[in-house]
Design a protein around this nucleic acid. Structure first.
Length: 867
RNA sequence: GGGCGGUUAGCUCAGCGGUAGAGCACUACGUUGACAUCGUAGGGGUCACUGGUUCGAUCCCAGUACCGCCCACCA
């Protein structure tokens, strides 16, 4: 006899172990069966299971188990992501406990530490997934940095490079001063913060003056005064040091008299103040601020554009920690050079400008915010702040309080600095075309469909994707550099000079490949060189030291060095749908399971991941990676707040599993997973669904007590005579039809809801109550039929609920089988019924509707009488 | 600034061109010998606002007002 309740803590590990041992999660590889594949969004290897995973994995598991029961050849491909920044962060923190900094170790030693950590502590989430009942094929588990996936990454990189879709460029990128790496646009979170806008005077060169006139809309003069300066507003005074020009709108009448003249940056030692030109550009908005904008090409995206259009030098002011630069020649010398450049008296180019440190000596090495305060104080002390009348009538510096959008690193939380650096980029615009088309023409569908608009909107405005990261943990960029060579004819012979100023990159899946193309390159331009075996340097300095000698045959020795950077984590994630199936090898799995049936994910990852998988899949396989993209909601707490540790409202799925069992959590997730944008989870809800499990358990117990648990599997509905039995068979069939349709449409809430309603409100509340008289009566035929149908219906219920509640259903199966006829194998072998879909016994249904109604009426009649 | 979505019962939301639905909460009665319960019944809504299309609009269209979210370079 069954206990009166299910014991999840005891049953779950036992059942899961047995599923795994019996290989229930492996694809059948039955060639006659339709393939069905889902690749799991790989959680970070550092990750622990949170509510988002619990929802995401539950929904996938429901689909996977459902399709497996329907007889498809099902693969759920699991694995984890190396998560570059996150993992490096975790390991650095670990090391810090023993007072070790990353930079105390060599790169190789550090990376070895990370692997060590990964082996020991990484991937806990896999075990946590097992507690949830995730039925992925763990024997195929992959890691984005394992050997096969790394090879795929190199191959993709090299091919894209050879096609010109990956390139190296010096651009303004988002620089994270904490991690000291570039990050992509997507990894930046713009947040509105309280800021200030300072107004300063840039004096005109040589004490020149002009008449400054302001007019209102009607053309009436509202202000007219002689000025010897131009007024500039800025939220970032510290970047003034790198200004290359002041820009005004070409139609701005106020400044027409001084366009083309020079003005002075009012900061730094007086004797070396720099002069910069006043130029025109369409960018400044005459109606905003003073209408004049200082142009700092190396530290602001807009200014960068202006500087590029007008050929204005872009002086970098900060180092990789976003502190004011402390390198290079003393300020006086550099400023003098800058002065000659501004006057057009000296030639310049990018690298030359980049090398110049225009930070005045007294600011060098300061943190950027410290520098800001100093700059503001110095300018104000100097009398170059614009003054306004304060509340008490005194003149005070004009500082506007202002909300400004500030970029923060999504992982580090520090303010991102736009920095001019050399990075690798993917031409995302080119790759996005096919990715866009595939959704537009319906090869891939978003569910709900509306998300395709978000997807289009992003693709239509896509920017180059910065893929290089200045980290140690990740896929090393498969590029090696050699010197640029300049050949000059001298005394009838050729003389080569090797320049490391702008090294030439050579890409290859291996060093040999890169070396070959390097060799070909140098040969092509007429340089006799040798590149030795697999002898490449670890750093640029080492490469320089080792290059350049001439051997006895007159060949220059060239030593290449590998790019120190690693790739953005999402680069490898983008390959996940095919790299995990064995690509570039033509494996059975790749042929069978690509494209996948559906990708299940939350909306916050559409850009990071979904779009990029579309791009890479279409580019390298020539086919979409998945037919559907199901976007589910975010999990919020019961008050609709985002769960977070700091708020203290985070619920731990593992705690809920401990308390209520995995099935309760899974069923709750399924019932809440509507098409909405977020779902609210409460402990109460989970408890309610645990109670549902108990209800189911006791229905089974009732069947067992009444000898109903001896079903033989087959049932001929046409041979039934009792209306109540005919009716319940119809109801079962109807429920299966409803649940099947809902699951096919990713309506998890409807699917689970239909099952819930049927089990509790139809089977338990009505059917089991109605058959009690039959079971206790003396009509042996009716009794036998009822027992058979009740047991059969229970069997169907277990099938119906299995995708949602695998543990309790499996356990019931096992328990009942001990008392009834032996069943073959595990539930994984059970088939989703198709027999009775659409079966309706109309007469019985009508009759039962009538009976139910009548009983209800009698009950309320009795209630009215107070009986 | 651009885009997306929301506004329906006290709460959370579903719905749909044709007398408004669910769950929770509330009230009443009844059950609890498969069940850690639950059942039955009931009260409760100008479906944000304004126009338009239509025989008919909560639903379709346009606009307004709030509220979310995403993206974006106003110094």
């Amino acid at each position: 006899m069954l206990n009166s309740r299910f014991d999840p803590a005891a049953a779950e590990p036992r059942l899961y172990k047995r599923w795994e041992e019996e290989g229930c999660f492996k694809p059948s590889m039955d060639t006659a069966a339709e393939p069905y594949c889902i690749v799991i969004p790989p959680p970070n290897v550092t990750g622990v299971l949170h509510m988002g995973h619990a929802l995401n994995h539950t929904l996938q598991d429901v689909l996977i188990r459902f399709e497996r029961m329907r007889g498809k050849n099902v693969l759920w491909q699991p694995g984890t992501d190396h998560a570059g920044i996150a993992t490096q962060m975790v390991v650095e923190r670990e090391l810090a406990k023993s007072q070790i900094r990353r930079t105390d170790l060599t790169r190789d030693d550090f990376v070895a530490k990370v692997w060590e950590w990964k082996e020991e502590s990484g991937g806990q989430i896999v075990n946590q997934d097992k507690r949830l009942g995730v039925s992925a094929d763990w024997s195929r588990e992959r890691f984005t940095m394992d050997e096969g996936l790394s090879a795929a990454v190199r191959k993709v990189f090299v091919q894209l490079y050879n096609e010109g879709l990956i390139y190296r460029d010096k651009r303004l990128v988002n620089w994270d001063p904490h991690f000291q790496t570039a990050i992509s646009d997507l990894e930046v979170e713009n947040t509105e913060v309280d800021g200030h806008m300072w107004h300063f005077k840039y004096p005109l060169a040589g004490g020149e003056t002009y008449t400054y006139v302001e007019k209102d809309e009607d053309g009436t003069v509202t202000l007219e005064e002689e000025r010897d300066y131009i007024s500039i507003a800025t939220t970032r005074p510290e970047t003034m040091l790198g200004d290359g020009a002041v820009a005004v709108h070409p139609d701005d009448e106020r400044y027409k008299p001084i366009v083309g003249k020079l003005c002075e940056i009012p900061v730094g030692p007086k004797e070396h103040r720099r002069l910069i030109p006043i130029i025109t550009d369409e960018y400044p908005d005459p109606a905003f601020g003073s209408g004049a904008v200082k142009i700092t090409g190396a530290h602001d995206e807009n200014d960068h554009g202006v500087a590029q259009r007008n050929n204005i030098p872009m002086y970098s002011l900060m180092d990789e920690r976003a502190a004011m630069r402390a390198d290079g020649a003393p300020y006086a010398e550099v400023a003098a050079v800058a002065q000659r450049i501004a006057e057009g008296a000296e030639d310049w180019d990018g690298p030359k400008i980049q090398a110049m440190n225009l930070v005045p000596d007294e600011y060098r090495g300061l943190d950027r915010y410290e520098a800001r305060e100093r700059v503001v104080a110095d300018i104000t002390a100097d009398g170059n702040a614009v003054m306004v009348e304060g509340e008490d009538g005194e003149m005070i510096p004009y500082i506007e309080k202002k909300k400004i959008m500030q970029p923060f690193g999504d992982r580090s939380g520090v303010v991102i600095e736009p920095m001019l650096t050399d990075q690798w980029f993917v031409n995302a615009e080119e790759l996005s075309k096919e990715a866009r088309a595939a959704v537009a023409d319906g090869r891939t569908d978003f569910v709900p469909e509306n998300w395709s608009k978000t997807y289009f909107n992003w693709l239509d405005n896509i920017e180059p994707w910065c893929i290089s990261r200045q980290l140690w943990w990740g896929h090393r960029i498969p590029a090696w550099y050699g010197p640029a060579v300049e050949r000059k004819e001298l005394d009838g012979g050729w003389v080569e000079t090797y320049g490391w100023g702008k090294p030439v990159p050579f890409c290859g899946e291996t060093f040999e490949e890169a070396a070959h193309s390097a060799f070909a390159y140098y040969k092509d331009i007429g340089v006799k060189c040798e590149i030795v075996g697999d002898d490449y340097a670890d750093s640029e300095i080492e490469a320089q030291e080792r290059s350049g000698q001439v051997n006895e045959d007159g060949f220059y020795r060239v030593t290449l060095y590998q790019d120190p950077d690693v790739l953005d984590t999402w680069f490898s994630s983008a390959l996940w749908p095919f790299s995990t199936l064995g690509w570039p090898d033509e494996t059975d799995e790749l042929n069978t399971f690509y494209p996948g049936a559906v990708l299940v994910t939350a909306f916050d990852i559409i850009f990071f991941w979904v779009a990029r998988m579309m791009m890479m899949g279409l580019k390298f396989i020539g086919e979409i990676p998945f037919k559907d993209v199901y976007i589910h909601a975010l999990v919020l707490d019961e008050k609709g707040q985002k769960m977070s540790k700091s708020k203290g409202n985070a619920m731990d799925p593992l705690e809920l599993i401990d308390e209520y069992g995995a099935d309760a959590l899974r069923f709750t997730m399924s019932r809440l997973a509507g098409m909405g944008r977020n779902i609210r989870l409460s402990k109460q809800g989970v408890e309610g669904n645990r109670n549902f499990g108990t209800k189911l358990w006791n229905a089974a117990r009732f069947c067992q007590m009444n000898e109903c648990a001896n079903w033989d599997g087959e049932l001929d509905p046409a041979a039934l005579t009792e209306p109540v039995n005919q009716w319940i068979v119809s109801e079962v069939a109807g429920t299966f039809a409803e649940t099947t349709a809902a699951l096919e449409a990713y309506r998890f809430d409807d699917a689970a809801g239909a099952a819930y309603k049927f089990v509790w409100n139809t089977y338990c509340d009505w059917y089991l109550e109605l058959i009690k008289p039959l079971l206790n009566g003396d009509n042996e035929d009716a009794k036998a039929e009822t027992r058979r149908v009740a047991g059969w219906a229970l069997d169907q219920i277990l099938k119906l609920l299995h995708p949602f509640m695998p543990f309790i259903t499996e356990e019931l199966w096992g328990e009942l089988a001990e008392h009834g006829p032996k069943r073959e194998g595990f539930l994984m072998l059970q088939r989703w019924p198709e027999f009775g879909v659409g079966y309706v016994h109309e007469a019985a249904t009508e009759e039962m509707d009538w009976v139910c109604e009548l009983i209800s009426e009698i009950r309320s009649f009795r209630a009215d009488l107070g009986v």
